[in-house]
Design a protein around this nucleic acid. Structure first.
Length: 809
DNA sequence: TAATTCGCTAGACCGA
DNA sequence: TCGGTCTAGCGAA
């Protein structure tokens, strides 16, 4: 029998059943021949059973039969296995996944069975982990003439995935006659397509004067052209923007209506729309469908992007600083009906696909690296939370270490865990007012480094061998093994070291190369995982949840920050403020930046393991303020370095739920005070703003406030302004979904603020409540700063005090 | 389908 | 109408 050995990019993995009802894994690889599908009919779904006596129960279980009205199921086999963290484990296998699902609940009732494990690892993921494969990495397959895989292994030698990835994007424009587009009724009027080599817009029946536009006779011809184009280009990855919830489902429905086959999957089948939680997700079998919208959402969660709206216009601006013209749905309808201005629509349509392609080009490397690290497909990675990614990283690592994976907690357990919160970081009350010569120190990746340095892991917790030893005894009283690093902790250390190694490699590579971009993406993926480890330890649904570990981490964190503050004071610095992993120190006249660095060095010599205190910066001036209710405000301050650069933290200026006019005024006040030391100028700025508001000439944009609608309108106990605005808009026929960020204004009409609140699009220029914006926005934002300089509200709003109060003496 | 706690503040809501 | 309490959202780390 001829055996062929091929290496290819592992794009997709799923499973089917053969004629005999046996589960069969399918692997989709990009080889020299295109995307080839290989099957592995010999891998069986399984899970583990922990029992009192493995040898005895093996026979019993193999003899058992489970049945209902429709079927009878038996195990394929049960085999005793040695696991590093459990005795008497049986690995029980099944013909297929539905048999497994049928039996997994029942088998717990069998005599001698104590527990079942790993019964909820999806079959295809199970295969990837057990075979040591890497999705979006290369795999070597030895296959017979029918493409049955006889051997499968990861091909770590090859690493050119990102360079060679075939990516294509498309985007639809549809008709929406006075309502949201409905694929059952409304036609697609334009489709843009973009890949590395070509860009097109397809339309039908109209004249469009653009050379990149191809005009077809009808919608059917146009849609067919897209389908043909995708099949011709045979991409590894199809990227859309919002394709999960819009473009793909819409296309699918249209194809059905038009009698077209939407056969763009690598095996010639059609994409499937899956329900994923509250959202949809569209799978293109054999290839990967990545919705760039999900990538953008991830970037927003990571703080790379600060977005209110997630449309491509906002993204283009935030990511690339470029203005992209928006063409509204009604404009598209109008252009289509009149046949005029279709060039503008085509430009817009093409720009959508082009920007989507650009986002893909820039951020697919991160997806690819994350896929390889966590053994998930690009499809899954781009739609997963960091919690899920960490979980799969640990699942894979468990398998490699022959460890049995803990089960997901039951719902009662989740509730019980969530009920008891735990103490977090320490925040020191600052001294309100103006300060000069402030040094900021912080612990580099504090929580990860505590976990690594103190061997924090569920399996090293309170070990018998280290009882009474002080070395890894947390302030909580729990201790961790000194002899063993622990599963969780050692994995974290590996990641930490790997990242340092990659960062070293990056220094030897030119920045504009693909190699650099890949390395950058790799260390970034590691950083994301690194920073999620502590969070999941205290996450109620996490398999490896450990309250003891989570509390030990924060307790040590508080301990070390206190130590630094104390040591600083002993050395002649004045501790000003601290938050979780940082320490703000005021330098006395005789001390310099160098002394701070020396101090940090001294601290570092005494710190355990990989923990490190870093010098973050030295600032000329800083201001801390008093809370409205009195007392020093935490998490709110502004610093200015010796070059005049401002850092504003926690103030209204950084909050999206405050109006631009208040934020901008606040910033100018901070600038006047910190940069120029001119509080009287600040007063002038405030008075001018108030005057402008009173005259009613402030444009809408400066008055918008943004707040997310976090639940369905009816589910609120209190109707806040943004909810009231949403209610009114919905009554007018607007469709507002949970999770959308509302842009609203406080208008003149109504009594309460909620009554006055309206979505910005329904408000005409000049219709705003000046009193509200003065008294509830501008004044509260600036008064907290001006108060520190001895000014009162009256001083700002009315005449009064003009002289500076010698703020810097 | 879902990473953590700490902290500030608004505006609604409720009872006197 | 006023003041206290609570819901809700956002940001820091």
């Amino acid at each position: 029998m001829a055996v062929r050995k091929v290496s290819g990019l592992l794009l997709d993995i799923d499973s089917t059943q053969d004629e005999q009802g046996l589960a069969c894994i399918r692997l989709f690889l990009r080889t020299g021949k295109g995307i080839e599908c290989f099957t592995d009919p010999d891998f069986r779904p399984y899970f583990y059973v922990l029992c009192d006596d493995a040898a005895k129960r093996k026979k019993e279980l193999e003899g058992m039969e489970w049945q209902d009205a429709n079927r009878k199921v038996r195990l394929l086999k049960a085999e005793a296995v040695e696991k590093a963290n459990a005795g008497n484990a049986l690995k029980v296998s099944f013909k297929n996944t539905s048999d497994l699902t049928f039996v997994r609940g029942e088998i717990r009732k069998a005599a001698g069975v104590k527990e079942t494990r790993e019964y909820d690892i999806p079959f295809a993921k199970r295969y990837v982990i057990d075979k040591g494969l890497e999705p979006m990495g290369y795999a070597v397959v030895e296959a017979d003439a029918e493409n049955r895989a006889l051997r499968v292994a990861c091909d770590r030698e090859r690493d050119e995935a990102v360079k060679r990835l075939r990516v294509c994007c498309f985007d639809l424009e549809t008709l929406s006659p006075g309502r949201f587009s409905d694929p059952k009724r409304d036609a697609i009027v334009m489709i843009s397509y973009a890949d590395a080599d070509e860009q097109h817009v397809f339309t039908f029946g109209k004249k469009v004067k653009r050379d990149y536009v191809t005009v077809f006779d009808d919608e059917r011809g146009m849609v067919q052209a897209l389908v043909d184009k995708i099949k011709e280009k045979d991409p590894d990855i199809v990227v859309t923007y919002n394709g999960d919830s819009f473009d793909f489902p819409y296309l699918k429905e249209r194809c059905q209506r038009l009698g077209l086959k939407f056969d763009v999957n690598a095996d010639g089948s059609e994409p499937v729309v899956r329900q994923k939680g509250m959202d949809k997700a569209v799978k293109v079998r054999g290839r990967q469908h990545v919705d760039a919208f999900q990538i953008v959402r991830l970037l927003a969660r990571l703080g790379v992007l600060d977005l209110v709206k997630f449309d491509l216009e906002a993204v283009a601006k935030a990511l690339y600083g470029e203005e992209k013209e928006k063409v509204k749905p009604e404009e598209i309808n109008q252009a289509w009906d009149s046949g005029k201005g279709l060039e503008r629509v085509a430009d817009y349509n093409l720009a959508d696909a082009a920007y989507t392609l650009r986002i893909a080009r820039d951020y697919l490397p991160l997806t690819v690296e994350m896929a390889k690290l966590t053994k998930q497909t690009a499809f899954d990675v781009s739609r997963s939370s960091t919690g899920i990614l960490v979980e799969y990283l640990l699942i894979d690592k468990s398998y490699r270490n022959n460890l049995l994976i803990p089960n997901k907690p039951r719902e009662e357990e989740v509730e019980a865990r969530a009920e008891k919160s735990f103490e977090g970081g320490y925040v020191k009350s600052p001294v309100p007012g103006l300060h000069e010569n402030i040094a900021v120190l912080d612990f580099r990746s504090m929580y990860p480094s505590i976990i690594v340095s103190h061997h924090i892991s569920p399996d090293t917790l309170n070990c018998a061998c280290c009882k009474g030893l002080d070395k890894h005894k947390a302030p909580t009283g729990d201790w961790f093994c000194d002899k063993r690093q622990g599963f969780f902790s050692s994995l974290l250390e590996d990641i930490l070291n790997k990242r340092i190694e990659i960062q070293k490699q990056m220094k030897a590579v030119a920045k504009d190369t693909t190699e650099y971009k890949v390395l950058y993406a790799r260390q970034w993926a590691l950083k994301i995982l690194l920073n999620s480890f502590y969070g999941v330890l205290g996450y109620a649904r996490f398999r490896w949840y450990s309250r003891e570990c989570a509390t030990a981490v924060t307790a040590w964190g508080r301990h070390y920050v206190h130590e630094v503050l104390q040591a600083a004071e002993n050395d002649g610095f004045t501790p000003l403020y601290a938050d979780s992993d940082s320490a703000f120190l005021i330098l006395p006249r005789e001390k310099s930046e160098d002394d701070v660095k020396k101090f940090a060095k001294k601290v570092n010599e005494a710190l355990p393991g990989v923990m490190e205190l870093e010098f973050e910066g030295y600032y000329r001036r800083g201001i801390f303020v008093t809370k409205k209710e009195g007392g020093a405000a935490k998490k709110k301050y502004a610093l200015m370095d010796f070059e005049g650069n401002l850092t504003i933290v926690g103030f209204e200026y950084v909050r999206r739920d405050w109006a631009q006019i208040a934020k901008e005024t606040q910033k100018r006040v901070i600038e006047a005070v910190l940069k120029e030391g001119k509080p009287d100028k600040a007063v002038k700025v405030v008075r001018e703003t108030i005057e402008r508001l009173k005259q009613g000439r402030v444009p809408k944009e400066e008055l918008f406030m943004y707040t997310m609608l976090r639940r369905t309108v009816g589910k609120y106990e209190q109707v806040a302004p943004h909810v009231a605005a949403a209610e009114k808009a919905i009554k007018r026929g607007k469709d507002i979904g949970v999770g959308s960020v509302l842009e609203f204004i406080i208008t003149k009409s109504g009594k309460t603020i909620s009554e006055k609140a309206e979505l910005a699009e329904f408000v005409r220029e000049g219709d705003y409540d000046a009193e509200y914006y003065i008294n509830n926005q501008v004044v509260p934002a600036v008064i907290k700063i001006m108060r520190e300089l001895g000014y009162s509200e009256q001083d700002l709003v009315h005449g009064g005090k003009q002289s500076s109060l010698g703020a810097f003496t």
